[in-house]
Amino acid sequence: MKAEVRQQRSLLELAELDAEIGRIEHRAKNLPEQRALGEAQVGHREAGDRLAALRIALADIDEQVAKFEGEIDSVRQRGDRDRALMDGGTIDPKQLTELQHELDTLHRRQTSLEDSLLDVLERREELAADHQRVLAEVDDLQTMLSDAREVCEQAGAQLAHRRAESLSRRADLTAGIDESLLALYERQRSRGGVGAGPLQGRRCGACRIEIDKGELARIAAAPEDEVLRCPECSAILLRVTGSHA
């Protein structure tokens, strides 16, 4: 295939532009800002899970508090009834002894329940403090998450803008390249390789492999408008430098 040096120079510029687009797309898929956002999301989610667990624990402990308070109230009411009977003076000595024994038992039971309630209330106070601490942590992490999302969106938008500009330049550039030459370039790219690269001394600029002396001699002897291929990677080998003016 033949192609004017000017066309080959444009192809070199196209290869450089495609490499730039590739770098932009790679960065877009591997944004440090995206990783930071992911870490912020994980931190916020984990703190949210801890907060939810504390809320469940508080609800459970509130049930225990209500249960103890109900039992204490029931024991207190029974004790009040027994004392009222004793103060009424209408019971015999045997009943009086039984009521006194029951009051002693009720007193021990109430003391035990109140001690247990105190332990539960102390535990609740600790959980409530943890809840407030984690709630504040979640609020802080929410702010960090919002900031990280904004930074990530800005970085993504900047890359999208750069990519759009590069694609626009690419469209303008390809419009001036011979269809056959462009088709050859695109076929090479579609195989997963670099479409074209400059000859840099003895090395192909596309695959970075050194070309043997025999091939170099053949390349040097070829007319300047001859479209050459790298013997190693098959990329179009360009013996020109610079870009299309």
Rank of each mutant, 00 (worst) to 15 (best):
R45Y: 04
V240F: 06
I177H: 02
R169K: 15
I177W: 03
E122L: 08
T97H: 06
G43C: 10
A175Y: 07
Q8A: 04
R124V: 07
S180G: 12
Q8T: 05
D92A: 14
A57E: 13
A221I: 05
I72H: 04
S190Q: 15
A52I: 07
V138I: 03
Q95M: 12
L181Q: 03
A52W: 08
N30K: 05
T143E: 12
V120M: 04
S234H: 08
D225H: 07
D140Y: 00
R163Q: 15
I236P: 01
A148M: 14
R149L: 09
V42S: 06
A129G: 00
K29Q: 15
A84N: 12
E114F: 09
I24E: 01
V227I: 13
F68Y: 15
G43Y: 09
V151L: 11
E210P: 02
A222K: 07
D172T: 13
A160N: 11
M144I: 04
I91G: 00
L31V: 00
G88A: 13
E114Y: 08
D92K: 09
L12Q: 02
E226S: 07
G242Y: 14
H131S: 08
R163M: 13
E179L: 11
S190P: 09
G205A: 08
G22T: 06
I177K: 02
E102Q: 10
I236R: 03
P231K: 06
V194R: 06
T241E: 14
Q100G: 03
L117P: 03
A47E: 10
S116L: 11
L85Y: 03
R78G: 04
G38E: 15
D212T: 07
D82L: 14
E33Y: 04
L117S: 05
T111P: 00
E137H: 07
R109K: 05
I219A: 07
C152G: 11
L121K: 15
L181A: 04
R9S: 00
I209R: 15
L85W: 03
A53K: 15
L228Y: 10
D147L: 10
I236H: 01
A15L: 05
S116A: 11
A3S: 10
Q64L: 14
L135C: 00
D49A: 12
E39P: 00
A157Y: 12
H101Y: 01
G205R: 06
S168H: 11
A183N: 10
R123H: 11
M86R: 13
